Amino acid sequence: MIFRQLFDPQSSTYTYLLGDAKRGEAVLIDPVFEQARRDGALIRELGLVLTATLETHVHADHVTGAWLLKRQFGSEIALSADSGATGADRQLAHGDRVPVGDRYLEVRATPGHTRGCVTYVLDDESVAFTGDCLLIRGSGRTDFQQGDPRAMYRSVRSQILTLPPACLLYPAHDYRGLTVTSVAEESRFNPRLGGDIGEADFVGYMNNLGLPHPKLIDIAVPANLRCGRPDQGDALPAEPTWAPLTFTFAGIWEIPPAALEEHAASVQIVDVRQSEEFEGPLGRIRGATLIPLS
Protein backbone atom coordinates (compact mmCIF):
# COMPACT_ATOMS: atom_id res chain seq x y z
CA MET A 1 0.00 0.00 0.00
CA ILE A 2 0.99 3.60 -0.61
CA PHE A 3 0.34 5.75 2.45
CA ARG A 4 0.91 9.45 3.07
CA GLN A 5 -0.15 11.61 6.01
CA LEU A 6 -0.57 15.24 4.96
CA PHE A 7 -1.14 18.26 7.18
CA ASP A 8 -2.97 21.58 6.91
CA PRO A 9 -1.38 23.96 9.46
CA GLN A 10 -4.27 26.45 9.41
CA SER A 11 -6.83 23.96 10.76
CA SER A 12 -4.43 21.29 12.11
CA THR A 13 -6.20 18.80 9.85
CA TYR A 14 -4.66 15.55 8.68
CA THR A 15 -5.45 14.36 5.17
CA TYR A 16 -4.61 10.78 4.28
CA LEU A 17 -3.64 9.34 0.91
CA LEU A 18 -4.12 5.60 0.66
CA GLY A 19 -3.25 3.84 -2.60
CA ASP A 20 -2.85 0.44 -4.20
CA ALA A 21 0.52 0.49 -5.95
CA LYS A 22 -0.33 -2.48 -8.16
CA ARG A 23 -3.57 -1.05 -9.49
CA GLY A 24 -2.45 2.56 -9.35
CA GLU A 25 -5.66 3.67 -7.62
CA ALA A 26 -5.97 5.84 -4.53
CA VAL A 27 -8.40 7.57 -2.19
CA LEU A 28 -8.02 10.71 -0.10
CA ILE A 29 -9.53 10.93 3.37
CA ASP A 30 -10.56 14.39 4.66
CA PRO A 31 -9.01 16.64 1.99
CA VAL A 32 -8.85 20.39 2.70
CA PHE A 33 -10.00 23.01 0.16
CA GLU A 34 -6.85 25.15 0.40
CA GLN A 35 -4.63 22.07 0.00
CA ALA A 36 -6.36 20.56 -3.06
CA ARG A 37 -3.60 21.82 -5.37
CA ARG A 38 -0.94 20.19 -3.17
CA ASP A 39 -2.86 16.92 -2.98
CA GLY A 40 -3.40 16.87 -6.73
CA ALA A 41 0.31 17.39 -7.32
CA LEU A 42 1.18 14.44 -5.09
CA ILE A 43 -1.31 12.18 -6.85
CA ARG A 44 0.14 13.07 -10.25
CA GLU A 45 3.75 12.66 -9.10
CA LEU A 46 2.99 9.21 -7.66
CA GLY A 47 1.29 8.21 -10.92
CA LEU A 48 -2.00 7.40 -9.20
CA VAL A 49 -5.63 7.66 -10.25
CA LEU A 50 -7.79 9.30 -7.59
CA THR A 51 -10.98 7.25 -7.45
CA ALA A 52 -12.67 8.81 -4.42
CA THR A 53 -12.47 11.35 -1.63
CA LEU A 54 -13.84 10.18 1.72
CA GLU A 55 -15.08 12.37 4.54
CA THR A 56 -15.09 11.16 8.13
CA HIS A 57 -17.81 13.77 8.87
CA VAL A 58 -19.08 17.24 7.99
CA HIS A 59 -16.26 19.41 9.33
CA ALA A 60 -16.71 22.68 11.21
CA ASP A 61 -13.14 24.01 11.11
CA HIS A 62 -12.26 23.81 7.42
CA VAL A 63 -13.89 23.40 4.02
CA THR A 64 -13.40 20.08 2.29
CA GLY A 65 -11.43 19.84 -0.95
CA ALA A 66 -13.70 17.05 -2.26
CA TRP A 67 -15.52 19.15 -4.87
CA LEU A 68 -12.30 20.72 -6.21
CA LEU A 69 -10.65 17.32 -6.53
CA LYS A 70 -13.69 15.85 -8.26
CA ARG A 71 -13.56 18.77 -10.70
CA GLN A 72 -9.88 18.03 -11.38
CA PHE A 73 -9.78 14.22 -11.35
CA GLY A 74 -13.39 13.05 -11.70
CA SER A 75 -13.16 11.30 -8.32
CA GLU A 76 -16.29 10.26 -6.43
CA ILE A 77 -17.29 12.03 -3.23
CA ALA A 78 -18.32 9.68 -0.41
CA LEU A 79 -19.51 10.34 3.12
CA SER A 80 -22.06 9.10 5.63
CA ALA A 81 -25.72 8.96 4.60
CA ASP A 82 -26.44 10.41 8.07
CA SER A 83 -24.35 13.52 7.41
CA GLY A 84 -27.18 15.53 5.85
CA ALA A 85 -24.89 16.60 2.99
CA THR A 86 -25.96 16.95 -0.62
CA GLY A 87 -23.85 16.48 -3.73
CA ALA A 88 -22.14 13.23 -2.74
CA ASP A 89 -21.76 10.46 -5.29
CA ARG A 90 -22.01 7.78 -2.63
CA GLN A 91 -23.88 7.83 0.68
CA LEU A 92 -22.14 5.46 3.05
CA ALA A 93 -23.70 3.21 5.69
CA HIS A 94 -22.26 1.07 8.47
CA GLY A 95 -20.64 -2.04 6.99
CA ASP A 96 -20.11 -0.63 3.49
CA ARG A 97 -16.82 -1.19 1.74
CA VAL A 98 -14.90 1.42 -0.23
CA PRO A 99 -12.45 -0.10 -2.75
CA VAL A 100 -8.83 1.02 -2.84
CA GLY A 101 -7.56 -0.92 -5.83
CA ASP A 102 -7.62 -4.57 -4.76
CA ARG A 103 -7.96 -3.57 -1.09
CA TYR A 104 -10.85 -1.92 0.70
CA LEU A 105 -11.82 0.25 3.64
CA GLU A 106 -14.69 -0.87 5.84
CA VAL A 107 -17.09 1.86 6.98
CA ARG A 108 -17.95 1.88 10.68
CA ALA A 109 -20.57 4.32 11.95
CA THR A 110 -19.09 6.18 14.93
CA PRO A 111 -21.54 8.99 15.76
CA GLY A 112 -20.93 11.28 18.70
CA HIS A 113 -18.87 14.22 17.47
CA THR A 114 -21.57 14.61 14.80
CA ARG A 115 -24.44 12.36 13.86
CA GLY A 116 -22.74 11.44 10.58
CA CYS A 117 -19.25 10.47 11.79
CA VAL A 118 -17.64 7.34 10.38
CA THR A 119 -14.37 5.52 10.92
CA TYR A 120 -12.62 3.84 7.98
CA VAL A 121 -10.90 0.52 8.78
CA LEU A 122 -8.43 -1.13 6.39
CA ASP A 123 -9.46 -4.64 5.36
CA ASP A 124 -6.86 -6.41 7.52
CA GLU A 125 -7.69 -4.21 10.56
CA SER A 126 -4.11 -2.96 10.75
CA VAL A 127 -5.07 0.71 10.31
CA ALA A 128 -8.14 2.85 11.06
CA PHE A 129 -8.93 6.49 10.33
CA THR A 130 -11.00 7.79 13.23
CA GLY A 131 -11.85 11.34 12.17
CA ASP A 132 -12.83 13.52 15.14
CA CYS A 133 -14.32 10.65 17.13
CA LEU A 134 -11.15 9.39 18.78
CA LEU A 135 -8.09 11.65 18.91
CA ILE A 136 -4.63 10.88 20.26
CA ARG A 137 -5.12 10.85 24.06
CA GLY A 138 -8.40 12.66 23.61
CA SER A 139 -11.66 12.87 21.69
CA GLY A 140 -13.61 15.24 19.51
CA ARG A 141 -16.11 17.59 21.13
CA THR A 142 -19.81 16.82 21.34
CA ASP A 143 -21.47 20.19 21.87
CA PHE A 144 -22.63 21.08 18.34
CA GLN A 145 -23.72 19.48 15.02
CA GLN A 146 -25.94 16.89 16.71
CA GLY A 147 -23.09 15.90 19.01
CA ASP A 148 -23.87 13.31 21.67
CA PRO A 149 -21.35 12.25 24.33
CA ARG A 150 -23.20 9.01 25.08
CA ALA A 151 -23.13 8.07 21.41
CA MET A 152 -19.42 8.91 21.22
CA TYR A 153 -18.55 6.79 24.24
CA ARG A 154 -20.41 3.82 22.79
CA SER A 155 -18.93 4.36 19.32
CA VAL A 156 -15.36 4.38 20.60
CA ARG A 157 -15.86 1.45 22.94
CA SER A 158 -17.76 -0.75 20.46
CA GLN A 159 -16.31 0.18 17.06
CA ILE A 160 -12.74 1.41 17.59
CA LEU A 161 -11.25 0.00 20.78
CA THR A 162 -12.52 -3.47 19.83
CA LEU A 163 -10.08 -3.53 16.92
CA PRO A 164 -6.83 -5.51 17.39
CA PRO A 165 -4.51 -3.90 19.98
CA ALA A 166 -1.80 -3.32 17.35
CA CYS A 167 -4.19 -1.52 14.98
CA LEU A 168 -2.81 1.95 14.23
CA LEU A 169 -5.24 4.85 14.64
CA TYR A 170 -4.95 8.00 12.58
CA PRO A 171 -7.14 10.97 13.67
CA ALA A 172 -8.39 13.92 11.61
CA HIS A 173 -6.65 16.42 13.89
CA ASP A 174 -3.86 16.91 16.36
CA TYR A 175 -2.81 20.23 17.85
CA ARG A 176 0.47 19.12 19.44
CA GLY A 177 2.31 17.54 16.52
CA LEU A 178 1.35 13.96 17.38
CA THR A 179 0.72 11.81 14.33
CA VAL A 180 -0.46 8.29 15.19
CA THR A 181 -1.54 6.09 18.06
CA SER A 182 -2.85 2.55 18.51
CA VAL A 183 -5.79 0.72 20.01
CA ALA A 184 -3.59 -0.60 22.80
CA GLU A 185 -2.33 2.89 23.69
CA GLU A 186 -5.72 4.56 23.70
CA SER A 187 -7.32 1.70 25.63
CA ARG A 188 -4.76 2.22 28.36
CA PHE A 189 -3.81 5.89 28.28
CA ASN A 190 -6.69 7.90 26.84
CA PRO A 191 -7.77 10.07 29.82
CA ARG A 192 -11.32 10.47 28.52
CA LEU A 193 -12.16 7.07 27.09
CA GLY A 194 -9.55 4.55 28.20
CA GLY A 195 -9.12 2.32 31.19
CA ASP A 196 -12.06 2.08 33.56
CA ILE A 197 -13.65 5.41 32.58
CA GLY A 198 -17.41 4.92 32.66
CA GLU A 199 -20.02 6.38 30.35
CA ALA A 200 -21.47 8.69 33.01
CA ASP A 201 -18.03 10.11 33.83
CA PHE A 202 -17.32 10.75 30.16
CA VAL A 203 -20.69 12.41 29.59
CA GLY A 204 -20.23 14.67 32.62
CA TYR A 205 -16.77 15.69 31.48
CA MET A 206 -17.84 16.44 27.90
CA ASN A 207 -20.89 18.42 28.98
CA ASN A 208 -18.71 20.78 30.99
CA LEU A 209 -15.87 21.56 28.56
CA GLY A 210 -17.15 25.07 27.85
CA LEU A 211 -15.22 25.45 24.58
CA PRO A 212 -15.83 28.30 22.11
CA HIS A 213 -17.25 27.30 18.75
CA PRO A 214 -14.77 26.89 15.88
CA LYS A 215 -14.01 30.22 14.21
CA LEU A 216 -15.00 29.01 10.73
CA ILE A 217 -18.12 27.06 11.69
CA ASP A 218 -20.52 29.46 9.94
CA ILE A 219 -18.53 29.13 6.71
CA ALA A 220 -17.31 25.55 6.88
CA VAL A 221 -20.50 23.71 7.81
CA PRO A 222 -22.71 25.15 5.02
CA ALA A 223 -19.92 24.59 2.47
CA ASN A 224 -19.32 21.04 3.65
CA LEU A 225 -23.02 20.27 3.51
CA ARG A 226 -22.51 20.96 -0.23
CA CYS A 227 -19.41 18.69 -0.27
CA GLY A 228 -17.19 21.72 -0.74
CA ARG A 229 -18.92 23.12 -3.81
CA PRO A 230 -18.51 26.91 -3.70
CA ASP A 231 -21.65 28.98 -3.37
CA GLN A 232 -22.65 31.15 -6.31
CA GLY A 233 -20.31 34.11 -6.55
CA ASP A 234 -17.52 32.48 -4.54
CA ALA A 235 -14.15 32.73 -6.25
CA LEU A 236 -12.26 29.55 -7.10
CA PRO A 237 -8.49 29.31 -6.57
CA ALA A 238 -6.86 31.16 -9.45
CA GLU A 239 -4.86 29.12 -11.94
CA PRO A 240 -2.09 30.74 -14.03
CA THR A 241 -2.92 30.69 -17.72
CA TRP A 242 -0.02 32.53 -19.33
CA ALA A 243 2.03 29.34 -19.76
CA PRO A 244 1.63 25.56 -19.28
CA LEU A 245 2.75 25.55 -15.65
CA THR A 246 2.73 22.51 -13.39
CA PHE A 247 2.36 22.79 -9.62
CA THR A 248 4.60 20.34 -7.74
CA PHE A 249 4.20 18.66 -4.37
CA ALA A 250 7.21 20.72 -3.26
CA GLY A 251 5.00 23.80 -3.65
CA ILE A 252 6.76 25.19 -6.73
CA TRP A 253 5.33 26.03 -10.15
CA GLU A 254 7.43 24.49 -12.93
CA ILE A 255 7.55 25.61 -16.55
CA PRO A 256 8.81 23.50 -19.48
CA PRO A 257 12.02 24.87 -21.11
CA ALA A 258 10.29 25.42 -24.45
CA ALA A 259 7.53 27.46 -22.80
CA LEU A 260 10.10 29.53 -20.90
CA GLU A 261 11.95 30.27 -24.13
CA GLU A 262 8.69 31.31 -25.77
CA HIS A 263 7.85 33.73 -22.96
CA ALA A 264 11.40 34.86 -22.12
CA ALA A 265 10.87 38.39 -23.38
CA SER A 266 7.86 38.97 -21.11
CA VAL A 267 9.10 37.46 -17.83
CA GLN A 268 11.88 38.24 -15.37
CA ILE A 269 14.15 35.21 -14.94
CA VAL A 270 15.97 35.02 -11.60
CA ASP A 271 19.04 32.81 -11.16
CA VAL A 272 19.55 31.96 -7.46
CA ARG A 273 22.91 30.19 -7.75
CA GLN A 274 26.20 31.55 -6.48
CA SER A 275 28.09 34.01 -8.70
CA GLU A 276 30.81 31.49 -9.56
CA GLU A 277 28.13 29.10 -10.81
CA PHE A 278 26.40 31.90 -12.68
CA GLU A 279 29.65 32.74 -14.47
CA GLY A 280 30.82 29.11 -14.68
CA PRO A 281 31.06 26.61 -17.54
CA LEU A 282 27.46 25.38 -17.19
CA GLY A 283 26.27 28.74 -18.46
CA ARG A 284 23.02 30.56 -17.74
CA ILE A 285 19.76 31.54 -19.35
CA ARG A 286 20.11 34.63 -21.49
CA GLY A 287 18.69 37.70 -19.74
CA ALA A 288 18.65 36.09 -16.27
CA THR A 289 19.27 38.27 -13.20
CA LEU A 290 21.56 36.89 -10.50
CA ILE A 291 20.09 37.00 -6.98
CA PRO A 292 21.85 34.32 -4.88
CA LEU A 293 19.83 32.67 -2.16
CA SER A 294 22.76 32.99 0.24
Rank of each mutant, 00 (worst) to 15 (best):
E186D: 08
L168D: 15
T51M: 05
E279K: 08
K22A: 15
A264G: 14
R141Y: 15
F278Q: 09
Q72H: 08
P292C: 10
V127D: 15
D218P: 07
D89N: 09
R4K: 07
F73E: 02
N224Q: 07
L168I: 15
T51K: 05
G210A: 01
H213K: 13
F202K: 01
E276N: 09
E125N: 13
D132K: 00
T179G: 09
G283W: 10
G112K: 00
P281A: 06
L260H: 05
V100R: 03
V267T: 12
I255T: 05
E45L: 14
N207G: 10
T53N: 07
N224E: 04
L163E: 14
D20N: 02
H213C: 13
S266G: 13
T13V: 10
I2W: 13
D174E: 02
D148V: 00
T181H: 10
P171S: 06
D234A: 10
D123W: 09
L236A: 02
A235H: 01
L28D: 00
A60L: 09
A223E: 03
D174M: 04
A200E: 04
L209E: 12
L236T: 00
L135C: 13
L290N: 05
L135A: 08
L42R: 11
L282W: 07
V107A: 03
L163T: 12
Q274A: 15
P237K: 10
V270Y: 13
Q10V: 08
V63S: 02
A235N: 02
R273F: 12
T56F: 01
G210Y: 04
L260D: 12
Q268A: 11
Y104K: 06
L92A: 01
E125M: 14
A109F: 11
G112D: 07
S275P: 15
A109T: 15
A81D: 08
A243Q: 06
R229N: 07
A93F: 11
R97V: 11
G140T: 09
L290C: 04
F7W: 09
A184Q: 15
S155D: 03
G210W: 04
A166N: 14
H59E: 10
A66I: 02
L216Y: 15
T114P: 01
